[in-house]
Structure formats: structure tokens, C-alpha cells
Amino acid sequence: MKKLVYAIAFILLWNACKINSSDNKALPIFGNKEAVTKTVNGKQVTDTLYQTIPAFKFVNQYGDTITDKSLDGKIYVADFFFTTCPNICPVMHRNMLPVYNEFKSHADFRIISHTIDPKYDTVPVLKKYADKMGISGNTWWLLHGQKNDTYTIAKSYLVSLQEKNPQGQYVHDGYFILIDKQKRIRGTYQGTDAKEVEKMTTDIKTLMAEPDQKPTK
């Protein structure tokens, strides 16, 4: 009996330590860096400027206009898909669902999925897809936009998209990109790999705990 108590106490302590150690973990920052030297109060200060996601404008499945401003103060995950994609998209979104379910109650979290086939994936088509996926509310936006805009924004997420191949299929990366509240890239995950997506979920929690990612209220 006494042994059992010791064992429980040990496990509790151990876990407490683990929680503490994950508290001060921070995710890396990806993308191009630039060192800028400014003069603040007469002193030379060097700052690192990280690559950020530039301004954009798209329309979501409800027909609402979504811009970079709509994601101010949000941590979000971006990916690229199209509703008739036969190969990797069903896998990506099967893996994204648990992420959606885990964080849908967080007001400062979003998922945005850009369609790369705007001709077929009109706003009503995206709405139908959302309904069939069982996603509602404003956590997960399916974004429609000019093809050029989508292909341009993909580059800032470090995702590569290509035009239709000879079989009439689009070729694209299945990456999930994690963006922080300062619009910097904090992680890229292979969306077709359930293990990597689980890691992303863990990373999102780590990110949410970083001091400058806390809810702003």
C-alpha cells in the first residue's frame, strides 16, 4: 500500500516536471530572415525581421470577404486543396478533422483551405463541401480567389503549386503550414501523414502557450 502511494507520488511529480519543461519550449521561426539596424534613443539596435504572410483578399464558403486582417490576432493553419481532388486531399482533410475538433472552441484559432481550382470550386461548391465534411461556424474557412492570387500566396507559405498535368489533374504539395499571430511561419507538416499532423496539434498547443501568442483581450 505504502509502495503504491510512493509510486503515485513519483508519477505525479514526474508529470509536473514534464509540464514545466514544455512551458518554456518555443517553436522555430521559418522563412527568410533579415537583420535590420535601427537607432533607438540614440543607440544602435539590431533586430531580426522574419518573413511574414503578405496582405491578401479571398472569399470564404459563406461568401464573406476574408483578408489578412480577418486573421489578425489568430494562430492559423493554411493548406491548398480542391474539392474534386482524387488523391491526396481526402487524406489531408481526414487528418485535418481532428485538428478542427480539437481547436474549434478557441476564438483565436483558424484553418484556411485555399482551393486551387477556383473555376469548379465556386463559393456554393465550397459550402456544400463544408456541409458534407460536417464543418460549421468560422473555425475552418474554405477560400475562393483568383487563381493568380492563390498561386502567389502559396509561394509565401513556401508551398509549390503547378498547373494541370497532362491527365488534367492539379499537382500540389499536401503541406499544412502553421502561422502565428505575427503572421510568421512556425511549422510545416505533411498533411497526408497522420503522425506529422499529430505533431502539429502538439505544436499548436506549444505555440498557444508562448508569451506573445496569448489571447489578446
Partner: peptide, 15 residues
Amino acid sequence: QNCHGAKGEGLQGLI
């Protein structure tokens, strides 16, 4: 498998 899933579970109301 991509569409119907490793356990044949499909995907929500889509597949």
C-alpha cells in the same frame, strides 16, 4: 485508401 480510408471508414458525408 486515400478516399475510403485505411479502415474503409470513408470521409464524413463526402465519401
